[in-house]
């Protein structure tokens, strides 16, 4: 009973690492642009496929992560400038934007399905023999994933706290109009946001398939609600909050899965998302300043 709990917590930390990379990307994008981007999962899938293609052509291991990240960044920038911005210019508000991202996710998901011939492909790139770490049975792959997520967190915090770009990002997330008035080039910062959050999105996609060792068009379909829940629970725009919330989501999901069944763990994750959406400050219509407008 106790050992089940401990190993569930261990799996929860691994799941949390995977969620956290995506959640950090989502929270940066959402915190700054205020777009509830439900096509985030679809972009993860595309980046995962790009990494798979790179891998099947001989490029292996760590380069796959970089390639997936770059693919995610490029696609997100393309979508941000080519799709979201024109819609915003035509007067789309928060809600219409979310509808746009939904339609986009339909198109991307099924385009991936069409191109991949609705197949699932194997992606075994790192050795995965389990070994004992205290009371937890863990594989090398999972340990590497945990370290990747810690690395991403540290890198992101360094970027946000120590660089000028980071300061501009934080300023824009807090109050875009004031940031613009202070002379921050908001257009450029939005581009940086797309690239940064897109890179993390792509990275998260590759990390996800490294863990599941397979890639198909439904990769990340049930994953996105967990990511959105973690991002919003942790506070939009806060990477550290996203990581802490991911830990909560991951551990709750795995513990429910260990003591209940798999379906219930998914329901628990979804349930947390619903509760978070209902109760988080900034949820109320016409809420705090900066949270009712799109910044694109």
């Amino acid at each position: 009973m106790w050992s089940t709990f401990v190993s569930a917590v261990g799996f929860g930390v691994v799941l949390a690492s995977i969620i956290s990379v995506a959640a950090m990307g989502f929270t940066i994008q959402f915190g700054l642009t205020n777009v509830l981007n439900l096509s985030f999962g679809a972009v993860m899938t595309v980046a995962a496929f790009v990494a798979y293609l790179a891998n099947s052509h001989g490029v292996g291991g760590w380069s796959d992560l970089a390639i997936g990240g770059v693919a995610g960044a490029a696609l997100t920038l393309l979508l941000g400038r080519g799709i979201f911005k024109p819609y915003a210019r035509r007067g789309a508000q928060l809600f219409e934007m979310m509808m746009v991202t939904l339609g986009l996710s339909l198109i991307i998901d099924y385009a991936v399905q069409a191109i991949s011939h609705n197949n699932i492909y194997q992606y075994a790139v790192l050795p995965s023999r389990p070994f004992q770490l205290g009371a937890i049975l863990i594989t090398h792959t999972q340990l590497i994933i945990v370290f990747i997520s810690i690395g991403v967190l540290v890198g992101l915090l360094a970027l946000l706290r120590l660089t000028k770009v980071g300061k501009a990002l934080r300023a824009m997330a807090a109050d875009p109009d004031l940031a613009r008035a202070c002379g921050i080039r908001t257009g450029q910062i939005v581009v940086v946001t797309w690239l940064l959050s897109g890179f993390l999105c792509g990275l998260a996609g590759v990390v996800y398939i490294i863990n599941t060792q397979s890639v198909g068009y439904t990769t990340g379909e049930l994953f996105l609600p967990l990511v959105v829940a973690a991002a919003i629970l942790g506070g939009a725009g806060s990477p550290l909050g996203a990581v802490l919330a991911s830990l909560i989501m991951g551990i709750v999901t795995e513990v429910v899965s260990a003591f209940g069944s798999d379906s219930y763990s998914t329901v628990a994750g979804f349930g947390i998302l619903v509760l978070v959406l209902l109760s988080r400050p900034g949820s109320v219509r016409g809420g705090q300043a900066g949270h009712t407008q799109l910044t694109l």
Partner: peptide, 25 residues
């Protein structure tokens, strides 16, 4: 409730996902 319309739409979408999981499980 009186919440952001995009949150509200997302909540109802998630309820659809929850229902599928509950019936399947």
């Amino acid at each position: 409730r009186n919440i952001r319309s995009d949150y509200q739409a997302a909540i109802l979408l998630i309820i659809s996902l929850i229902a599928t999981q509950v019936v399947q499980g």
